[in-house]
Write a protein that binds this DNA or RNA. Structure first.
Lengths: 353, 353
DNA sequence: GCTTTGTGCGTGTACGTACCCGAAAGTAGT
DNA sequence: ACTACTTTCGGGTACGTACACGCACAAAGC
C-alpha cells in the first residue's frame, strides 16, 4: 500500500559533510547562534544556498520541545449575539490543527458593553509570557494602548474583525467594511424600484456609535451618493425589542415609500421579528452575519439577504498567520480581506462561517 | 520567547510501562500486527483507552519513511476554459502543505472533449501503485468502469466537481448543482419584472448535453415552475463565437420581452462580449465561475452576477480528505457541498476560488 | 532424546534536528 | 612558560515512533 522511498538526502548531515564540520556547527549557523567563526559561517551558508536546504520541520519539531504561547483577546460571548462564539470555534479549529506543533492558545475575554473590561483582560494577558496575540480591537483607545505595550515587548499581534491601520500590526484578517456596505446598497438597488426609499437601522448602546457599523453605513450611502434622499435613518440606541419596534414602526409610518430596510449589524433578526408580527411582508430586509437566529428568518423569508464575512475563518486564519510567522518564519500578508458573502434562502445550507 | 515544557507524558512508552511489556509489543497492538497473544493485546488496548492515547503524528511520520501516493485524474487545461487550471492550483496548495508528511501527488489528465482519453489516462494511472485517487468524473460510463477497478484494488477515491452517487466513493466535494440553478433563478427574479422573460443558454459541443449543466438548468426551471413560459431556451451546440452570437441575437430578436440571460457554464463571457458589441446594455447577465475573463466583464458591468463554487478549494479539500482518511485514519464526510457564492462587481476583489 | 517450527515478545537502531557538555585551539596576561 | 580565559567546534544524546532482528520457550515431528 505504501511504498518506501528514501527522501530528503540533503539535511544538516549532508551540509556538515560537505563543509567538513560537525552537525552542531551547521545547526549553529542555521539558528544564527554564536560560536562560529566568520569564515566557517560563510562557508556553511554558501552550501546551504547551493543545496537549497529546507529544514525538516517534522524532525525539528520533534527535537525541540519548545512551546509557542499564543493568546486571543476578544469579547466574551453574550446573550445579545452569538457572533463571538462562532469566532471562538475558529480558534479551536486552528488549535487542534497545530497543537501537535507545540502551539498553545490562551483565551482572554472582555465585555463589549464595557470599555474598562478591555484593559483588565489585557493586563491579565500580559502577566504571562506570550509569543503572539490575536485580538478584536473594538475600543480604539484601549487597543492602541495595549498594542503599544506589546510592541515594546516585541510581541507580534494580529487584528481580526476590524482594523486599526495606524498601529503596526503583523496583519489584519477581516472584512473591508466600507465595501461591504457599498455592496449591500448595490444589491438592494437591484431589488427595489427607483422611487422606493430605504431605512437604515443602526443598533447599539454606545451613543457615539460603533466604528464597524458606521463604516458599513458610509459605504452604503456612498452608493446612493447622488440620491441621498432615498435613505431614511433611524438610530435605535436602546437595543431592547420594544424600543426597536417603536422606532421602526414610526419610521415606516412616517414614510410609506420605504420598501427596504438595511441593518448594519447582526441584530437584523430583531427587525425580522417585528416585521412578521406587524404583518409587513412587502419589505425587503437585509442585514449581517450568519447566525442561527438570522438564518431562521432567512428561511422564513422575512430576511432576504445576509451579508457575511466568515468570523470563524477570520479567527482560524488569524491564528494561522501568527503560526506561520512565528514557527515557519514565512512572510505573511499585511491585510487579508475576507470575502463579502451574500447569503439567501437558497444557498444558506451550504455556507460555512 | 518560547518556554520549554514537558508534554505528552503518555506515549507508547507509558503504555508499555503500565502493561509491563515492551514498546514493540505496544506498537504491534497499535498497528494491528500479528505476534501478540490475545490476552496481552486486550490488556494493552484497555490501557490505550484509559490513557486516551493520541499517537504523536510528528514522531510517527519521522520514524516511518513511508510515502503515500495519491493521484488526480481531471481534464487538462485548455484554451476553452481555465477552470481546470484553477482546480490544479488547489492540488498544489494541498501538496505543499502535506509534502512534509510524505504525500506525493501524481497528475493524470484527459481531454474533456474526447471520451476515449479518459480510460487511456486511467490506464496509465493504474500502472503505478496508488493509495488514493481524486477525480472529476465527467464521463459517467468511463468513470464508473474506472472506479470499479479501483474498488477491486481497495483504493479509495474522491469525486470533485460533479458527483456519481451510485458508486461507493469515499467522498464527494463539490457543488449541489440543482440548488445552484435554483438560487440563480431566485436571484434573477429579484432583479427583473414579473412579465420579463429569461433566455437560458447551454453551451457545449456534446450533443447529448453535459450532466452538470443540465442539472443547473433543472434547478433554474424548478424555481419558475409555475410560470415556465417565462423561460426561453437556446442551445448553442457549437461554441465558436459567431454561432453563439447568431443564436442569441435570433432569440433576442424573436422575443423582445427577454430581459435577462442565464448561462449555465463558465462560458458566460462569450455572451458578455456579444452584448457589448451589439450595444445591448439593458439585459441582466448571469453565469458561472470566477475566471479572469468573466471577472473582467463583471467589472465592466456587462455581467451582473457570477455564481461560483470554489474549484481550487474543491481540489484542496478533496486531497485533504484522502489524506485525513489514509494518514490520520479520521472518518470523513461522505459529501462536502461547496458554498454557492454570489459574485458581483462589489465583492469580486475579495473572492478566493 | 533430539531437532524443527512457530508464537510471543524485547532489544536496539533509525528518522532529522536541537542542544548540552566538554574538548581543543587560540589569546592574553603575568 | 604558565595560568586563565575565550572562541570555536565535535561528540553524543534526546525527542516519540517504526520496525528489523533475534531470543526464549513450547509444541510438534523424528
Amino acid at each position: 500500500m505504501k511504498a518506501k522511498q528514501p527522501e530528503q538526502p540533503n539535511g544538516v548531515k549532508e551540509i556538515a559533510r560537505r563543509a567538513k564540520v560537525s552537525i552542531a556547527t551547521v545547526d549553529r549557523v542555521i539558528h544564527n547562534r554564536p560560536g562560529v567563526s566568520a569564515k566557517t559561517r560563510t562557508k556553511i551558508e554558501k552550501i546551504i544556498q547551493e543545496l537549497n536546504y529546507q529544514p525538516n520541520i517534522i524532525a525539528s519539531r520533534l527535537a525541540s520541545r519548545k512551546v509557542l504561547n499564543l493568546a486571543i483577546l476578544i469579547p466574551a460571548k453574550s446573550i445579545e449575539t452569538e457572533y463571538w462564539e462562532i469566532l471562538l470555534a475558529g480558534v479551536l479549529q486552528a488549535e487542534e490543527e497545530i497543537r501537535q506543533m507545540g502551539v498553545r492558545i490562551h483565551r482572554y475575554f472582555y465585555d463589549f458593553n464595557d470599555r474598562s473590561s478591555f484593559p483588565k483582560a489585557a493586563k491579565q494577558l500580559l502577566k504571562n509570557e506570550v509569543d503572539g496575540v490575536l485580538l478584536a480591537p473594538l475600543f480604539i483607545e484601549e487597543a492602541t494602548d495595549f498594542c503599544g505595550q506589546l510592541q515594546e515587548k516585541n510581541v507580534p499581534f494580529v487584528f481580526i474583525n476590524s482594523d486599526l491601520p495606524g498601529l503596526d500590526s503583523l496583519s489584519y484578517v477581516g472584512p473591508e467594511l466600507f465595501r461591504s456596505g457599498y455592496l449591500a446598497a448595490h444589491l438592494m438597488s437591484y431589488c427595489i424600484g427607483l422611487k422606493d426609499k430605504i431605512l437604515v437601522v443602526n443598533m447599539t448602546k454606545q451613543k457615539e456609535g460603533i466604528h464597524p457599523l458606521l463604516r458599513k453605513e458610509e459605504g452604503f450611502r456612498e452608493y446612493f451618493g447622488e440620491k441621498p434622499s432615498r435613505i431614511v435613518k433611524t438610530d435605535a440606541l436602546e437595543t431592547s425589542d420594544d424600543t426597536v419596534e417603536r422606532k421602526v414602526a414610526a419610521a415606516l409610518a412616517a414614510d410609506p415609500a420605504i420598501k427596504a430596510i438595511f441593518v448594519t449589524s447582526s441584530r437584523v433578526h430583531n427587525i425580522a421579528r417585528y416585521l412578521e408580527t406587524a404583518g409587513k411582508n412587502g419589505i425587503l430586509l437585509m442585514g449581517y452575519d450568519f447566525l442561527p437566529e438570522n438564518v431562521a428568518w432567512l428561511q422564513k423569508g422575512m430576511i432576504d439577504f445576509l451579508i457575511c464575512q466568515k468570523p470563524q475563518e477570520q479567527a482560524y486564519r488569524g491564528i494561522m498567520t501568527l503560526y506561520q510567522h512565528l514557527v515557519l518564519g514565512i512572510a505573511v500578508e499585511k491585510e487579508h480581506f475576507m470575502p463579502i458573502d451574500i447569503i439567501t434562502r437558497e444557498n444558506h445550507m451550504y455556507y460555512k462561517n
